[in-house]
Nucleic acid binder design. Structure first.
Length: 819
RNA sequence: GCCGGGAUGGCGGAACAGGGAGACGCGUUGGUCUCAAAAACCAAUGGCCAUUUGGCCGUGGGGGUUCGAUUCCCCCUCCCGGCACCA
């Protein structure tokens, strides 16, 4: 009898062993095949590690450990994404410098991560707040600027009227400031923008070359939102102005009975007639308070006002009224639309409310309309809206355009051609994706390395002067003018122009949190390099990332931004691959007990430290993997952990209390051993880790019964459990009599022939209902199976003397008599 | 609202490619061991009826395709993630 499983001692022992021996060091240029395994690095919040973090880390740690056993040179790094709002807000509250808080939090995270035994190569760790790292974040920005991909533009920010500061979206609750409860409105501010839209097509097309979960690809594609249509110019009546609209339905131009401009549209002041100035102005004040989300909410009633101005429909010169309404967004297309109420539900709703003309120009396809439950008559008379396929009607002019009778597709094409011939419009591709607002009027971010000189304009800080260090400030709040706190540090702001040497001013905006995380995976490859962002040869060895896992909540923005930066750096010849990640998966969130999000206010936070203290790192890891399907949300269940705790104790007893004997294994045990190796091997590759664990439970239930265990089975089992529960397995490996770590032992293989059973149970149905079953040798022929099935008493009863219509036989599985 | 995902026993979940629904774990009940308890082990465990051998119902709700649907199609409800300054 050996001593019971003491997790505290064992965890400590092996964590010290791994650290001392640098067991998980990734070797640059090793002859082994490389495998770059990446998890999203955490934001080191003051709350410490959340139980959600280890879900991702454990899963890819399991993968990493398996890959090492399969002979790969694995790079599995960790770092910290440490710029961001919470540290800054904490600093505002307490006056403690964010770098001090950040340092403390990183130490806590590091201790917690180490206590879970992840096989990270800790020699490569860094934080985005390290000046040696953000030097290169800034440098990348200067390259973007030089290539014309960074520019300044006026963009709205949330502005709290009473705090006189800019606010993040999440600090605006129901249109009010989170801190003081007063009104928030939009305010236009000059900001740095990155031209991500230039890469829109490549960001869609290159998805074909990578292995992402399909839902992730779909999110990316839908976010970019590519559409084809036309830009069309409408002349403003009695003024020398034109309004350009983007439409995906140029075929419906004859049905355009009014226009709508976004309340922010630049032409509004010019075109609004005297009588309408006041209403328009009031409406603009009202709209500025709403978020885009509220504005496009279909369920809320449409609002808007008439400007008093008219435009001319270019296809029939009809005078149509120009309105402004907040359901049109300034950020999409040209910020103005032609409204076709008969064929767009939003326009239909608006026109109905304000009594505007509705003219049907597309007769619905009869069959389709019936299926959709829409009356063709109603559409034709302007009492219903039709957006689908149909035949164009009422659509010709005496200027060479006649699209009557055409399908939607043909009519689009013909109209676009006509517009181009006449020079009043052109074919256009449009994206929902907008350029990236890259400025923050905040303190705790990378300073944007730009200098403004009256003579030279915007000039980049030269490489030799990077990084532009974040200076100390007295107050962390944004200034009352809306500038960042850096604006108050006058001796920092005042500098000389790097180009002409005259006095100049530094940019005081900082970068968003997304900046540092857009290229961190490149830096792990060469984390201390001071002369380039990472050595080209090393990048060639390690890139691309073989497998990247992170939260579902990051699959649009972060993923898109980092793909964009990769493509840019690739175009600059700095990195060898234009797609950074070969494979991307996402894990679901870990919710509190009862399925609610874990939060301080709900008081349902589970601290990983407590679990590790009570049960040990291996139980914690295993439980997180057993909790449910990896890609779906799962709720924590304190009771569920005991099952895993029992399982590991059982494994411990199975190995330490049984006689480990060098004997032949019987067929049934061989079958279980080999199907376990197979299932675990395959499930790790698909991250179905919950089912891998249940199969190992099946194994343990069988092999712990006998008091002795064949050595071959014991060793294989310890090896396949090792990636999941590395501490206990290292210890058991030692107890079995080995002196080396399991880390580089060979991953067990299985023999399919040993898994197949000789006898199979065949189900018998009559008319699809189960009526019995019987045992039969595998691969028996259909006639024998049929005969045996008919012998069953209960089957005979249900067939009775009814006529046999059909017999369906699924090999080794089922017989169905249809009578 | 738009985009993406999800719903299976008392609970977490499993089910390869349309073929026996409920693997594995928790919980519950009964038993073994013990002075007792804990631990461990054994057995039972979707619901209702018949209490044997069996029958009916059952994968969020409603329809459909099929010999056969948790799985495919249409409609609906609810829940979760994202919506561009949270990370």
């Amino acid at each position: 009898m050996t001593s019971p499983y003491n997790h505290k001692e064992i965890d400590k022992k092996w964590q010290v062993y791994w650290e001392k021996n640098k067991t998980f060091k990734a070797i640059d240029f090793s002859d082994k095949k490389k495998f770059y395994c990446l998890v999203e690095f955490p934001y080191p919040s003051g709350d410490g590690l959340h139980v959600g973090h280890p879900r991702s880390y454990t899963a890819l740690d399991i993968l990493s450990r398996k890959k090492r056993m399969e002979g790969y040179n694995v790079l599995f790094p960790m770092g910290f994404d440490s710029f961001g709002l919470p540290s800054e807000n904490y600093a505002i509250k307490t006056g403690i410098h964010p770098s001090i808080i950040t340092q403390k939090n990183i130490e806590k995270f590091t201790r917690q991560l180490k206590s879970l035994g992840f096989s990270f190569d800790w020699d490569r760790v860094f934080s985005t707040t390290d000046p040696k790292y953000y030097k290169w974040t800034q440098w990348i920005f200067t390259q973007l600027f030089k290539k014309g991909l960074a520019y300044k533009d006026k963009k709205p920010i949330n502005w709290c009227l009473s705090c006189k500061t800019g606010l993040a979206n999440e600090e605006v609750i129901d249109g009010r400031c989170e801190r003081c409860g007063n009104d928030v409105e939009k305010r236009q501010v000059e900001q740095w923008m990155l031209r991500i839209t230039k890469y829109a097509d490549r960001l869609i097309d290159d998805l074909d070359s990578v292995d992402y979960l399909n839902k992730i690809k779909l999110q990316q594609i839908n976010w970019i939102g590519r559409s084809e249509g036309a830009m069309v110019d409408f002349k403003v009546s009695d003024l020398d102005e034109k309004i350009t609209v983007y439409t995906t339905r140029p075929d419906t131009l004859f049905g355009a009975t009014y226009m709508v401009l976004a309340p922010e549209h630049e032409l509004i002041d010019k075109i609004t007639s005297q009588d309408y100035k006041t209403v328009v102005e009031n409406y603009r004040k009202y709209a500025v308070k709403k978020s885009d989300l509220e504005r496009t909410e279909l369920s809320t009633e449409k609002t808007g006002v008439f400007t008093g101005a008219y435009a001319e429909n270019p296809v029939n010169n009809e005078k149509i009224p120009i309105w402004i309404a907040d359901y049109v967004l300034s950020s999409y297309g040209s910020g103005a639309i032609m409204a076709v109420p008969a064929h767009d539900t939003r326009d239909f709703e608006f026109a109905t409310k304000f009594g505007l003309t509705i003219r049907c120009i597309n007769r619905p396809d009869t069959e389709l309309a019936e299926k959709e439950g829409v009356s063709v008559e109603a559409v034709l008379s302007g009492n219903a809206c039709w957006q689908l396929e149909g035949t164009t009607i009422n659509s010709s002019n005496d200027n060479g355009l006649d699209i009557n009778g055409m399908s939607v597709e043909d009519a689009k094409k013909r109209t676009t051609d006509w517009l181009e011939e006449k020079g009043i419009g052109k074919y256009a591709v449009n994206y929902k994706l907008r350029d990236w607002v890259f400025s923050r009027q905040r303190y705790w971010g990378e300073p944007i390395p730009m200098v403004h000189c009256i003579d030279c304009g915007w000039v980049t800080v030269p490489e030799k002067d990077l990084p532009v260090l974040l200076p100390d400030v007295e107050k962390y709040e944004p200034s009352n003018t809306g500038e960042s706190p850096l604006a108050a540090v006058t001796d920092w702001v005042n500098t000389i122009c790097p180009k002409c040497g005259k006095t100049a001013k530094r940019e005081t905006d900082t970068m968003p949190n997304w900046a540092g995380s857009s290229w961190y995976f490149l830096r792990y490859i060469d984390p201390t390099n001071d002369s380039v962002l990472a050595d080209r040869k090393k990048l060639e060895y390690w890139m691309p990332v073989n497998w990247y896992n992170g939260g579902m909540e990051h699959t649009t923005l972060h993923l898109l931004y980092s793909r964009f930066w990769s493509k840019f750096l690739y175009d600059c010849g700095l990195i060898p691959t234009s797609e950074p990640y070969l494979k991307r998966t996402s894990h679901g969130m870990v919710l509190g007990e009862g399925g609610e999000k874990m939060s301080k206010s709900r008081g349902n936070i589970i601290n990983p430290d407590d679990v590790v203290e009570k049960y040990g790192a291996d139980v914690f890891r295993l439980y997180e993997m057993f909790i449910g399907p990896f890609d779906q949300a799962a709720s924590w269940d304190t009771k569920g952990i005991v099952g895993i705790d029992r399982f590991l104790k059982k494994v411990w007893r199975m190995i330490t209390n049984s006689d480990i004997v060098d004997i032949e294994i019987d067929t049934e045990q061989l079958r279980i051993l080999h199907s376990t190796i197979k299932k675990v091997s395959e499930d790790i590759e698909t991250l179905d880790l919950n089912t891998a664990i249940s199969q190992m439970m099946v194994f343990t239930n069988e092999f712990s019964k006998h008091g002795e265990i064949p050595k071959q089975a014991a060793e294989s089992f310890v090896k396949i459990l090792y990636p999941f529960a590395p501490h206990i397995c290292e210890e058991l490996w030692e107890i079995i009599g080995h002196t080396n770590t399991i880390t580089f032992e060979q991953w067990p293989t299985y023999d399919q022939n040993l898994i197949v059973e000789e006898m199979v149970t065949i189900a018998v149905q009559v008319n699809g209902k189960l009526r019995g079953n019987f045992q039969m040798e595998i691969d028996s022929n259909d006639n024998e199976v049929k005969k045996a099935a008919m012998e069953i008493e209960n089957v005979k009863i249900h067939i009775g003397n009814r006529e046999m219509k059909k017999i369906i036989i699924i090999k080794n599985k089922l017989v169905n008599f249809v009578v």
